[in-house]
């Protein structure tokens, strides 16, 4: 007897997009999140053998990480930025990193996704594809909170575009309940760069503390274009602006704890930047 329930396997991106458009399927890359929940009546669309989704490539502006690339594969790639490697090396444990993917981390829509945090801090983009075309969007804005994303029902995430940059300073801290197999309780990624003595980028992203990864560009703007001296003078009001904006939710830990740790990490980041 041949049972035909439970899923489809795609062997090319075109096949995958056809299935995605024509069937009611849940894209399945690594399975580490999907298999925890109960999707008893769902058909999966298995993507792990779609070559277009398994590559890490680069062009002039971006390192392009395929959606079905696993965290372990990224760690082994010379192309993947160090900050991203730092983040994914702290995800769960080897068996999970061997399965979990960049696309899955995004599509799961969790603010605790460690790779998404770095993508938001890095101004990464996503290439979303469907049978009818493709679009590119900022990662910041893709996740809408509580498992919802901007992905349309006929679309697949094709790749993550990490801008090529070599900033003056990168900062990453994952705060979990233990050293491995830990879901982030607070996570923070910061990127700092100067050009001609003036701050050209000071990105600060906070993970696991609200419905989505948080980044406050209007606060960052306070320091953009400033000299280090000027920024030092503004540091207190800069931190105070975050303190006001960081309205956090409680989860496994209290909102007060999250807020205190966010501010500690922000301060540590600023100090590391020399501010």
């Amino acid at each position: 007897m041949v049972n035909t329930s439970g899923g489809y396997s795609a062997f090319s991106l075109q096949e995958a997009l056809e299935l995605r458009a024509s069937q009611d399927v849940i894209p399945y890359a690594g399975g580490t999140d999907l298999m925890v929940g109960k999707h008893r009546d769902a058909d999966y669309l298995f993507l792990s053998r779609v070559p277009e989704l398994r590559q890490i490539t680069e062009d002039a502006g971006y390192v392009r990480i395929g959606a079905a690339v696993t965290f372990s594969e990224a760690l082994a790639s010379p192309l993947v930025p160090q900050l991203m490697k730092e983040a994914v090396s702290g995800i769960a444990a080897p068996a999970i990193r061997n399965a979990g993917t960049f696309g899955g981390n995004l599509a799961n829509g969790s603010p605790k996704a460690d790779s998404v945090l770095v993508e938001v801090a890095s101004d990464a983009k996503l290439r979303l594809v469907s049978r009818s075309g493709e679009r590119t969007m900022d990662v910041d804005g893709f996740c809408l909170g509580r498992g919802r994303t901007a992905l349309r029902s006929d679309e697949l995430i094709a790749e993550v575009l990490m801008p090529k940059q070599s900033p003056d300073c990168c900062f990453y801290e994952k705060v979990g309940g233990r050293s491995a197999l830990a879901i982030s309780r607070v996570s923070f990624a910061g990127i700092f760069d100067t050009q001609d003595g003036r701050i050209s980028n000071i990105a600060a992203a906070f993970g696991a503390v609200a419905d989505t990864v948080l980044r406050f560009r209007q606060i960052e703007a306070m320091l953009i274009g400033r000299t280090i001296e000027e920024a030092r003078a503004l540091r207190d009001s800069y931190v105070a602006a975050y303190a006001e904006q960081l309205v956090l939710t409680r989860g496994r830990v209290s909102a007060e704890y999250r807020r205190a740790v966010c501010l500690n990490l922000l301060n540590a980041f600023l100090s590391q930047c020399g501010l």
Partner: peptide, 15 residues
């Protein structure tokens, strides 16, 4: 509510 190994944390080899 802490009724799973992701909510009730016991030490790992790395801890």
């Amino acid at each position: 509510r802490s009724n799973s190994f992701s909510d009730y944390l016991i030490p790992t080899a790395k801890d």
